[in-house]
Amino acid sequence: MGDSWIVDNLNAALNTWNGKLAEIWQLLTESPQTFRGGQVWSVMVGIHGALQAIGYGLLVLFFAIGVVKTCGSFVEVKRPEHALKLFIRFALAKAAVTYGLELMQAVFSIVQGTVSTVITQSGTSGMNSTTLPQELVDAINNVGFWDSIPLWAVTLIGGLLITVLSFVMILTVYGRMFSLWMYAAIAPIPLATFAGEPTANVGKNFIRSYAGVCLQGLVIALSCVIFSALAASPPSVDTSASVVTAVWTYVAELTFNLLVLVGAIKGCDRIVKEIMGL
């Protein structure tokens, strides 16, 4: 007897989930520069270059504000040690605006190396695919028409939950990639605040926030590795119970496991903020 609609529906939901897990694994090991052929990155680089001109203008403005607020009089500016301090601050701020994108790529490369180390040490080259147990498939195929009606409801609910969870999970990971692009595009403006001592906190918070977004990849990778270890043993099938009970128990246990992973990925932002003290 061929697979029934119930089996096909469950398999379709599991295939969606497996596909999203594989996509997450690819996103974790890919940089914003190479994603989708680098088309989005080239646009962000163009915007970054255009905002650099604005950043240079703001650089002078923030520097002037800093001089006014930190110096009691013009006589202090004329002191060699104070003038040297202001010159060094301005030079470092200009270097941050000029080479900010390269510095951000270096930070991302360091975190990406950590992610690769976690993946390598875990011995996991990808997420394990979740498949429907053969004994459950056989039990469903042997159910008569009237007895299969409750299974339709169970299958619809379970398949819908699995599909929704898979899209919630992948949207979170894509959100991180979008954040990396946006940080790269607008970097010259917040980095220009380093020119003035009173406004330097804006630049510091920007760098910390960017490092936090990069670290989200590490937390997501750890979540996937932990889930892969927990899911090494698939949910058990109770062959002594009725088919409806067996299917419902299997779907409920599987959905709970998937919900744990989604919760861990969704909570990566909170975890990183606690680590970074944001």
Rank of each mutant, 00 (worst) to 15 (best):
Y210I: 04
S236G: 09
K273Q: 09
V219T: 08
L161M: 12
K266R: 14
G144L: 04
Q52Y: 03
Q26V: 13
V202T: 14
P188S: 08
F108C: 02
M1D: 12
A229N: 10
G212Q: 01
A200I: 08
T193C: 09
I6G: 01
V237S: 05
T98N: 10
E102Q: 11
S42H: 09
D8V: 08
Q26D: 15
S4C: 06
L171G: 07
G126F: 09
N18K: 00
Q112F: 09
A106M: 10
S242D: 14
A221R: 02
C224G: 04
G55Y: 09
V143K: 08
Y174L: 15
L261W: 07
W146M: 13
V7L: 02
A246C: 06
G72Y: 08
H48A: 13
V67Q: 06
L10Y: 13
V260N: 01
A91I: 12
G19Q: 04
S122I: 10
Q26S: 15
V164T: 06
G203C: 13
E197N: 11
L101F: 06
S42M: 11
E81Q: 14
R208D: 09
I265H: 00
S42F: 02
K266S: 11
V219R: 02
G263H: 05
F35L: 15
R79W: 04
G37E: 08
A232C: 00
